[in-house]
């Protein structure tokens, strides 16, 4: 009985500790991601700022607007729904990239938190998936001496420029493992281009890695299977989750979604 009680106590304590886990961040690197959602139309290019937050042991990569959005939602968590009677969502920060990528130096895999609509997923991926080929070519980018490396990852060939002047073996998205920070990386079609635009050494505390709602721990291939299913039935899936589109907009929505055919990972 006592043993059961102690076990329950430890279990509850571990849940609480996990839920409240905070990371102390030493460096914040801001990348501008320019991407082309429709592979057939260069005019669809958009951009979004992304954060790479690092300390000596780990890094977290996520979109800037996702980071702001998490902070806003945390501020109103569990307020009763009756306090709203109409919503205009136009000023709320939004992102097209919901992933949060955790790279820990002590682990040989990276942990990816991602979303399919409002469902949260977590999967792990080996951090040896990217085999870099370092060349002797150099270039100065924003005053930093950079060296070129190339790699293939998830259906795209990439060209990266890293700098020994920032001796952090990390970079945007899932990219890391070069002898210096990746300053710029793009696939050869320029459909996804990450460029370092700012860095700051201000200390900050980060606590919103794990999602508040249900988390499905799965594999990368199951996650991408679910994503494929979602894309086939997107309007219906959105309705099931709690947003009903008025009928007159449904056809417009379906046409619009057809133009989003160029994810960063083409193969997994």
């Amino acid at each position: 009985m006592v043993q059961k009680f102690i076990f329950t106590l430890i279990f509850l304590a571990s849940i609480i500790a996990n839920a409240q886990k905070k990371y102390s961040i030493q460096h914040k690197f801001t990348y501008k991601l320019t991407y082309q959602p429709d592979s057939t139309d260069v005019h669809t290019k958009q951009s979004e700022d992304m954060f790479l937050l690092t300390n000596e042991d780990l890094s977290i990569f996520q979109s800037k607007n996702g980071y702001i959005k998490d902070s806003l939602l945390l501020a109103i968590e569990n307020k009763p729904a009756q306090e709203i009677n109409m919503l205009d969502i136009s000023r709320f920060p939004k992102t097209q990239f919901h992933f949060k990528i955790l790279k820990e130096k002590s682990e040989d895999s990276i942990t990816v938190y991602d979303k399919i609509y409002t469902d949260n997923f977590q999967y792990k991926e080996s951090n040896n998936n990217i085999k870099w080929e370092i060349t002797s070519e150099t270039l100065s980018i924003n005053g930093l001496k950079c060296q070129k490396a190339t790699a293939y990852y998830a259906g795209r060939n990439y060209e990266a420029w890293f700098s020994n002047e920032i001796p952090i073996s990390d970079g945007p998205y899932k990219f890391s493992g070069l002898p210096g920070l990746i300053i710029k990386i793009s696939d050869l079609k320029n459909h996804y281009v990450f460029e370092l635009i700012a860095k700051s050494d201000k200390n900050l505390s980060y606590s919103s890695l794990k999602p508040r709602r249900n988390l499905f721990i799965t594999t990368k291939s199951i996650y991408f299977d679910r994503l494929k299913d979602y894309k086939k039935n997107i309007v219906e899936r959105i309705a099931q989750s709690g947003f009903t589109i008025n009928d007159e907009y449904k056809e417009e929505v379906k046409q619009k979604l057809k133009k989003r055919n160029n994810p960063i990972e083409l193969k997994n």
Binding site: K69, L73, I76, E77, N78, K79, P80, A81, E83, I84, L87, I89, F92, K94, K115, Y117, T118, R212, R213, I238, S241, G242, F243
Partner: peptide, 11 residues
């Protein structure tokens, strides 16, 4: 909750 309504609208 307010958070859930907002999350659904944002999503």
């Amino acid at each position: 909750t307010t958070t859930e309504i907002l999350e659904n609208a944002i999503a």
